[in-house]
Every structure is written in structure tokens, then in C-alpha cells.
Design a protein around this nucleic acid. Structure first.
Ligand SMILES: [Mn+2]
Ligand SMILES: [Mn+2]
Ligand SMILES: [Zn+2]
Ligand SMILES: [Zn+2]
Lengths: 137, 137
DNA sequence: AGACTAATTGCGATGAATTCGCAGTTGCAC
DNA sequence: GTGCAACTGCGAATTCATCGCAATTAGTCT
């Protein structure tokens, strides 16, 4: 009675590529599909970029990973269990700071109360200037 | 002593294309570069898409327009003077609602106090579910 | 274990969005 | 009016993501 693998539990086939993509997302914290592919290639050099894209989508469909938008370009991926923070992205230096999601609790609540809008604060980054970049030069 | 045109005041050359791009952004409210080009072509059919891109960038550099990210894809442009609202984007139906920027004032203040982060709440949309899409089906 | 079937993969082609290089044109300072 | 740098049109190039398809493979059922 071996425990079923977490991917099997979600109804997904267990392929080395899929496991490696999930492991890479978990290891990397935030990662673009390119970065995930690079990481996976350390142990599985032949993996194709489209396989990475397809697995990220599949893993997102079953709730194991999620994407966010940290910058002007493409998405970055997180392990779902780790997506419990806000991203504070600096428009000048590009740094990505974290803040607990509770920092937005009142804001989220007031959007719900006043506009009936149920906010997902993690999907887009919070954009602005980090502390360093506000300093006079 | 004619008043200098607003574009000249910013140190920009006054070309028909540039004026039309700015006018289109102002007329359209939110617009993608494609949409701006379409609008401009109503009166200036020959305008090239790369000219639109270049002018949007130039106009943004002098502060007359600004871009925001409303969805997973590319940017949309606003006249700068009009960018005084939040965008509430529904992940399900795609609707874009507005909310006054003051709705985020407390949130912005607390990010400044607690993290030294100076937030630009309009650059990314606020993502979530609109009132309609929360209704049970 | 062996066979079957549908899901998954690799790969190259394709598509969409944006940027670039350059030759020709044009705004504007003189 | 002249001259020059800024700007434009145009086609090519980039970048990022998706697609089609034939070959492979995971999981199921004898
Ligand atoms: Mn942006
Ligand atoms: Mn998204
Ligand atoms: Zn910074
Ligand atoms: Zn909706």
C-alpha cells in the first residue's frame, strides 16, 4: 500500500519531466518558464521548452503551481503552497521584495465591501519604488 | 506669441503622427498599441505600427501618457492626466471596473510605513472576481 | 509479464507582439 | 531657403508562446 504520488493523486500521469518541472518551481521560488527549463536541464538535458510550458499549465490546472506577473513581460511561476505573500517590485532596480499577504487585508476587505470585488492580491505584483531607490543620489 | 504646443513644450517635434497618437490615447481611455493605430488610421491611414510604438514610448518618457497592465498580455495606454483610478479586472469575464485611487490610500500608506515602499497602484491591475462572476450559477 | 490505449513528449513550424536597421522625409533652428 | 537631426515607413529580425504531428511511454487490463 504505497502512498500514491502527489501527482497521481491529482489524476496526472507521473513522468520524469513533470516531476522535475514541479521540483524546479519549488526550488526556484519565482521562476519564468525559461528558468524552469534551465533548472530541469541540469538533470534532464533533453527536456523541451514546450514540455515545460505544457507542464506548467497542467500543474496550474490542478492547483500545484500558480503564476504571477512581476514585470512588464511574461509570467513567473510559484509553488501554490508558497504563494502567500505580496510581491513588491521596484520599477527602478527591479528588485522583488516580499510582504505578508495580510498587509493587504484591509484593502481587500474594502474592495469587497465597496465594490463587491473579490481580490486576488498575488496575481499581479505591487509596483513602485523600493526604499533604496527613493534615496536622493 | 502663439502659445507653444504642448508637445513642443516637452521638447518634442510636432508631427502629425505624434499628435494623432496622443489624441487617440486621450479619446480611447484604455488602449493597446494596436487599438491606437486603428484609431489613428481613421484619419491618417498610412501610419505605421512601429511609429505608434515609438510615439507611445516617447510620449511616456515625457509624461504625457502612461501604460498599465490589465491582463496577462501586453500593456495598455492612458493619458497621464486620466490615470487616477484603479483597474479592477475580473479573471473570469474579463471586465475592467474602475475604482477611485483613494480606495487604496490606506494600503499604500501602510506599505510606505512598514516597508519603505512607494507604491504605484495604477501600474498593474487589481485582479480578482467581479460581483457578477461571484454569483452562484 | 505482455498488450493495449491514451497521455505525454520532442521537434520543427507557426503565430503574435514588439523591436530594430536603414534609407528617405520632414520639422524647425538659423 | 539651407542644413541637420529627429522622425517615419518599411521590411526584417527577435522574442515568447503555442501548435501539429509522429514517436514514445505511463498506467490499465488481461
Ligand atoms: Mn509596465
Ligand atoms: Mn495572469
Ligand atoms: Zn529599487
Ligand atoms: Zn467577471
Amino acid at each position: 500500500m504505497a502512498e500514491p504520488h502527489e501527482l497521481r493523486e491529482k489524476g496526472l500521469r507521473l513522468t520524469p519531466q513533470r516531476e522535475l518541472v514541479l521540483a524546479a518551481v519549488r526550488d526556484l521560488g519565482h521562476a519564468t518558464p525559461e528558468e524552469v527549463a534551465e533548472k530541469v536541464r541540469l538533470t534532464h538535458p533533453g527536456i523541451n521548452l514546450s514540455t515545460v510550458y505544457r507542464n506548467l499549465e497542467t500543474l496550474e490546472n490542478v492547483g500545484l503551481v500558480q503564476h504571477t506577473h512581476l514585470g512588464h513581460g511574461g509570467a513567473t511561476y510559484h509553488a501554490a503552497e508558497e504563494l502567500t505573500h505580496l510581491h513588491l517590485v521596484c520599477s527602478k532596480c527591479g528588485s522583488v521584495g516580499d510582504a505578508p499577504i495580510e498587509a493587504a487585508a484591509n484593502f481587500v476587505q474594502s474592495l469587497a465591501d465597496d465594490y463587491g470585488f473579490k481580490t486576488d492580491v498575488s496575481h499581479f505584483a505591487i509596483y513602485g519604488l523600493c526604499e533604496n531607490c527613493q534615496l536622493p543620489l
